[in-house]
Simulated assay, not measured.
Amino acid sequence: MKGMNHKGYFAKVEFDSEDHIFVGHIIGIRDIVGFHGESVTELETAFQEAVDNYLAACNELGQEPNKPYSGNLMLRIPSEIHAAVASAAEASGKSINQWAAGVLEKESHAH
C-alpha cells in the first residue's frame, strides 16, 4: 500500500467509525496539521489542500515550514547484518545505499 504523498509530505489516516469519516494528519513534522474527508477522493483533496495551506501560512508568517524528512538515515546494526547487507548489495551490483533504499521502499509500501 502506498501512503499519501504531496510535495514530499506524508499523511497518516484513520477511520472514525463514530462520525463515519477518514481523519488524517501530516506526519514527520513538528507542527500539527490535520484534515478529513468522507471519501477517498475527498480525503486526497483535503490532504493536498492541508499541505498547500500549511506552506502558504508559513510563507505568510515568514516562517520556514518543517521539512518532512532529509533523506539521510543512520542505522546502527550488528556487524553480521552489515556484512550480509554489503554482500547482498555487491551481489546485486548496487551500492549498500542503493540496495538498502530499494529494500526499504519495497517494505514500506508492502504494509
Rank of each mutant, 00 (worst) to 15 (best):
Q63W: 04
V23N: 03
E18G: 00
N66W: 02
L104D: 04
V85D: 01
N53C: 12
G24V: 11
P68W: 04
E80H: 10
L43C: 09
I81C: 04
I77N: 00
L73G: 12
K12M: 13
S39Y: 11
E44K: 10
F10R: 15
H6M: 10
L75F: 12
E44I: 15
V40I: 12
P78L: 05
L55C: 09
Y9T: 13
H111W: 14
E44C: 07
A11C: 13
S92A: 13
V40T: 09
E14N: 10
M1W: 08
V23R: 02
S92G: 11
M1E: 05
M4R: 04
H36A: 08
H82N: 10
S92W: 00
K2H: 00
P68V: 14
N59F: 15
I21Q: 03
S17H: 02
D52N: 14
A110E: 07
E64V: 12
F35P: 06
G37K: 04
A11E: 03
V85I: 14
C58S: 05
A50P: 04
N5G: 01
N59E: 14
I29K: 09
A11S: 06
N5Y: 03
G93A: 05
A110L: 13
D19Q: 00
P68E: 09
A100T: 14
G71R: 01
F22L: 07
E49N: 04
E49I: 14
Y69S: 08
K12D: 08
E42W: 01
F22D: 01
C58H: 05
F15Y: 09
N66F: 04
L104T: 12
I77Y: 00
H109M: 09
M1R: 09
L73Q: 08
L73M: 14
Y54I: 15
L61T: 12
P65F: 05
G24W: 13
P68T: 13
N97D: 06
A86K: 04
H109K: 07
L104M: 14
T45E: 14
G24R: 05
E90I: 01
S95F: 03
Q48P: 11
K94H: 05
G102H: 05
K106R: 13
E105K: 15
G93N: 03
L104H: 01
G34F: 14
L61N: 13
S17G: 00
G28M: 08
S79A: 13
N97T: 08
Y54W: 11
I81V: 07
E49F: 00
L73C: 06
G62E: 06
N59R: 15
S87I: 01
S87G: 08
S95N: 00
A84G: 00
K67C: 04
A84V: 07
F10L: 11
V13S: 07
A56H: 11
H82T: 06
E44W: 02
I32D: 11
A83F: 13
E107T: 15
V13F: 08
L75D: 09
S39W: 12
H111Y: 04
G93Q: 08
L73E: 06
I27Y: 02
E60F: 15
F10M: 14
H20L: 03
N97L: 12
E14D: 11
E90M: 04
R76N: 10
I96A: 03
A57P: 00
L55M: 09
N53E: 10
F15D: 03
I96T: 05
M4A: 09
A84W: 10
S79P: 01
A101V: 06
E14S: 12
A50S: 14
A89L: 03
S92L: 07
G34N: 13
G37A: 12
G93E: 06
A110P: 06
